[in-house]
Design a protein around this nucleic acid. Sequence first.
DNA 1: AGTTGCTGCGCAATCCGTTGAATAAGTAGT
DNA 2: ACTACTTATTCAACGGATTGCGCAGCAACT
Lengths: 186, 186
Amino acid sequence: MSLRHAILVLLQDQEASGYDLAREFANSIGLVWNATHQQIYLELGKLNDQSMVKYRHIPQDGKPDKKLYRITDEGRDELIRWLRKPAAPPRIRDAFMVKIAGGDLSDSASILRELDDQTDLRRERLNTFESLASKLDDTSRDRDLFTYLTLRRGILDQQAWLHWADEVRSALKKREEQPVSVPTSV
Amino acid sequence: MSLRHAILVLLQDQEASGYDLAREFANSIGLVWNATHQQIYLELGKLNDQSMVKYRHIPQDGKPDKKLYRITDEGRDELIRWLRKPAAPPRIRDAFMVKIAGGDLSDSASILRELDDQTDLRRERLNTFESLASKLDDTSRDRDLFTYLTLRRGILDQQAWLHWADEVRSALKKREEQPVSVPTSV
DNA sequence: AGTTGCTGCGCAATCCGTTGAATAAGTAGT
DNA sequence: ACTACTTATTCAACGGATTGCGCAGCAACT
């Protein structure tokens, strides 16, 4: 139950609309916590009911109106309270890894195909994170230390994944070179 | 929706009770997909209704009776069908990382405390995975290739995390040595 | 004698999250 | 002209997941 807290963290820096937040969840924070726009709007509604955030209505022409949310003192208190409690263990839901674990039932070709797709995605992400991190020069790296550390986490994560993918590729290649009769299930 | 498939993957190798599966979810597969016993029992019930699995009732004395589940042909078909479809992108729910991202509101001491706790956990996991992986010698590494690759994923993941944790520690240390006045929120 | 912990299963309430859709107006491309 | 995309919010339905509880007996520790 800490989508709310992720939102509060984002609102700490700047006033934002649900739409803005959704975009940030798709990028930066998405590395750490992901959410769809429906979820975000719902949660913003609840946070508003509990006066953790408040908004001002911005009429726009050409574009639809929007609500700019900002965090309240109650919101900041709640966030600080939450930060003090030990974090809940991460829930892991990696369907691709389940497929790897059940790899005996697949053929190498389809595994490799999906591995390559994932590799492209990860490589792209790595580039994004690296260019964001390099934009934080040494001076701003002090101010935005935690942004930097979050990015570092993402970078190391992608690198580890890509390294693993190489291992998978060479293992599958080796297996095909010496095709020892593989039992259906072991 | 692939708790069911994770269960089917596990049942592919051996007959197991809900309790057995829960233990495996707490360890090996837990690295990749986690679930509580309630969820598992519920899903086993559904899988049974759809005749993806069947069970035999084992009366025991001293211990409670149990149900030993095994996968059916329908279950294996369903699993193979699922393996062919592209996997859903992993959902990430890492509360600890949200706390890091909001680190400006915490004090270094409490961050370090939690970082150390997590480090212990990760190190322990790394040891477990490494000893499991080394048990798979070269011959069985061919048979259990996908078990091995899953373990490698876990190992690389823990290593990357531990490396990141070191970066965090030295960054926080450096910050305290030169305590530039840190604004309340940036 | 009492507590804790392990084996083993299950239900109910509630909450979290996803899927799918609707509305509405502008802009950019084919 | 038509299609597709972007900005911006919201609702409804369903299914997945968590929390809390309950039963039951044995083993082991204090």
